[in-house]
Design a binder for these strands. Structure first.
Lengths: 185, 185
DNA sequence: GTCTATAAGCAGATAGAC
DNA sequence: GTCTATCTGCTTATAGAC
């Protein structure tokens, strides 16, 4: 049997880009087909569960990325400041300095929220716990660490929203670069 | 001719609620019809331009609210702290302690962004300028005031996103109550 | 594994009676 | 001003050839 034109990984990558650009509802099969270069029927070969399974797979893929590139480094070696800076570097790249939206935000809106809300809530909480862990290591008490970690997520998500509304990367890059010092102060 | 069953104002109010719950794409005419209690054809009597005009009207309505209840009070009488607290009180009510989403966020996503993006950008900037004005009055320099005002919008929008993801009002109420002191410190 | 063709249903939108 | 009935096009999804 002939090899597929593009790998499954590449398909997921392109679907991810499409969902991040359009959100769930606006990402029609026609658009997803164009984004991947595959016909609709081919998409159903990869994802028999249809658009919902595509988004679920993309969300899993993003969660894997989050775990590997953010949560594990946060829990790993280095000073608290180093670990936070590592996260900032990864986020700056992942969100393209604020040009790309966050699926944990987009998939929690409208009808999509019914399907993906539970998974998103878990991801957000895991992310928050990972940041809080760093702050505890830095000597802050448990409660204060949790609040500051939540503040960090608020700052990141808010910066993405404002960057999108202003159509500018400044709010996001500025927020990210100020974040580590603010969390450890 | 018989009076309408509900006023135009009430129709807009219910449409606003519907769009804030669903976003633009998920707010189908069937749902908007149900939300208002009017048949689709009746909605077209009020809004010949269809769903797009409904959302545009709702956005204008929200912008009017913002002007009357946030921008004008921010520019009005009172100490900087009093004026900021006034905004916080209004926002807490308007966003139902974080249960309701912000249309300036939702309508900047996906296909809706093409239509409403420009108007949303203007609203965000007007809001930011109003906050910055208070901070200038408090003695901060122009540049620092602008940055802190942007931080305020980031905090508000981010808190709404995280509150939605966590399905909790805590992130929003906590963020709002800490905001004035943080801006004026 | 990819495609063309097509089904079934819902979306936004309109006509015209009352 | 509101409704029922209807239209057109797009959406998701499938069948079946290659």
């Amino acid at each position: 049997m002939p090899a597929p034109v593009i790998s499954r990984e590449e398909v997921i990558e392109r679907l991810t880009r499409a969902f991040r650009e359009s959100g769930y509802q606006s990402a029609s099969l026609a658009r997803l087909s164009e984004a991947t270069g595959l016909g609709k029927a081919s998409l159903y070969h990869y994802f028999p569960g249809g658009k919902e399974q595509m988004a679920e797979t993309v969300l899993d893929h993003v969660n894997d990325w989050l775990k590997d590139n953010v949560l594990l480094p946060l829990a790993g070696a280095g000073t608290p400041m180093e670990r936070l800076n590592r996260m900032i570097l990864e986020l700056n790249d992942f969100y393209q300095k604020g040009r790309c939206s966050c699926l944990l935000d987009l998939l929690a809106i409208g009808d999509a929220a019914v399907v993906f809300g539970k998974s998103i809530k878990a991801s957000i909480q895991a992310w928050e716990s990972a940041i809080a862990g760093v702050l505890v290591d830095a000597g802050l008490d448990e409660a204060e660490s949790r609040l500051r970690a939540e503040d960090a997520l608020i700052a990141i998500q808010g910066a993405l929203v404002v960057a999108r509304a202003k159509n500018s990367t400044d709010p996001f890059t500025r927020t990210l670069s100020a974040l580590p010092a603010r969390l450890l102060s």
